[in-house]
Write a protein that binds this DNA or RNA. Structure first.
Lengths: 219, 219
DNA sequence: ACTAATACTGCCTTTTTATGTAGTGAGGTT
DNA sequence: AACCTCACTACATAAAAAGGCAGTATTAGT
């Protein structure tokens, strides 16, 4: 690692609005340790160039002509797994945010971000962080907050949750009975109740509903 | 909203190390818009007091004598859902981080955080953000990154993923066959292959493994 | 042209599930 | 004491699923 490589961050911009794009370029190029090595108005244009392989970090919009930013991120990740991707958009709804993060973006900013914050975000991302505006961060964190086992929506009892977990492991009634010391019919009794409470009629549905309602965690 | 209410943030500290606790208190009380209304060395002690109901934000450790910080957060959330909880610990391993966030913390800091960053984090959390140190943020974001459908670990084909998704809905072979225009045996053929690739032998296991490997999303 | 892999169809057997119905004993309620 | 609910036991039956084995049409590679 030479001093230069360590400090010079090579940036690619993909943004269809010319003023925005040039504004960002101006802001970023002004920094000593940034260099904008490519700036494109669509993902297609970016993929045609050979700068992608050379960049450290891409700053991109979600709404782009042609391939959407989300698709672009997916493709970018596949072709250049080491490229750090930050989305900068006008959308702050859950769908856009989570789609972008799932696709592989490490950061998510609003377009109205101040130049200082943008610069900070890029440094942050380059140093292994995940820059996000505060309310985006909160959205993300909220997805972790468990429905506390005590007052889950479906109101499954301890025993039922225990059995649901065994179900998720793919165990048969008999095996579950063995692990929790209960007769096969006892296991079935509880499973029937689980189905009623979750309004399903198969173990698979119960498990997938259980996971999505965070009653249980897979693995 | 009076100007005072808006700006004065009432803080509770739960931290067993006396020097740390008093250090934080000193730092925070020095700020004009912070007031530390309680500082305890264990969750039990905090729950005995009546300050919890009056606070805006709690700053707490994970490793505490008696009830662990994680348990404490869960209980705190149940009793005072509006209290904002920030964890500040020496641990940055996945388990501690995710346990704390799942339990209900909105922020996660390292104890070595600088006074300025601590102050900023509290303002940030109070304004609806989720303060985290950069590498914690990255850990969190990484949990969103989908194994791209094209090169998932198990290498399921498009068709197989499609069927796995139907499986997660609890559909029978016959129903799946109807939705994807394939004979029952055709469906079975693919399911057998899915089982082989995922090394499972039941739909339930396949679904729960599929979800945990992010091959599919529930709901 | 031969071979191999892929994506099915078809069928058969055993195991497992889903669902219904009935009954028991313990514990708490009125 | 009568009654209820909860957590189970027990049994029966039909529908699915799992697993194994054989065969075919299509496509790609040699």
């Amino acid at each position: 690692m030479t001093g230069k490589d360590q400090s010079l961050i090579k940036i690619i911009i993909i943004e269809d609005n010319r003023y925005m794009r040039e504004g960002w370029k101006t802001i970023l190029d002004f920094e000593d340790d940034f260099v904008v090595i490519g700036s494109y108005e669509s993902c297609e244009e970016a993929f045609e160039s050979d700068t992608l392989a050379k960049g450290d970090l891409a700053l991109m919009d979600i709404e782009l002509p042609g391939m959407s930013g989300i698709e672009g991120v997916k493709k970018l990740r596949r072709q250049h797994p080491d490229l750090i991707i930050i989305m900068a958009t006008v959308f702050d709804d859950d769908k856009h945010v989570f789609d972008a993060l799932c696709a592989g973006a490490v950061g998510y900013l609003m377009k109205k971000v101040s130049p200082e914050d943008l610069i900070k975000a890029i440094h942050d991302a380059h140093e292994g962080g995940s820059p996000m505006t505060p309310n985006i961060a909160r959205k993300v964190i909220n997805t972790f907050h468990n429905t506390s086992a005590e007052d889950n929506e479906a109101n499954l009892s301890e025993r039922e949750l225990e059995i649901l977990e065994e179900l998720a492991k793919g165990k048969s009634y008999a095996k579950i009975g063995e692990s929790i010391y209960l007769s096969v019919d006892g296991v079935r009794y509880h499973i029937r109740n689980i189905y009623k409470k979750l309004e399903v009629n198969s173990r698979t549905e119960a498990v997938s509903k259980g996971i999505s309602q965070r009653l249980i965690n897979p693995e």
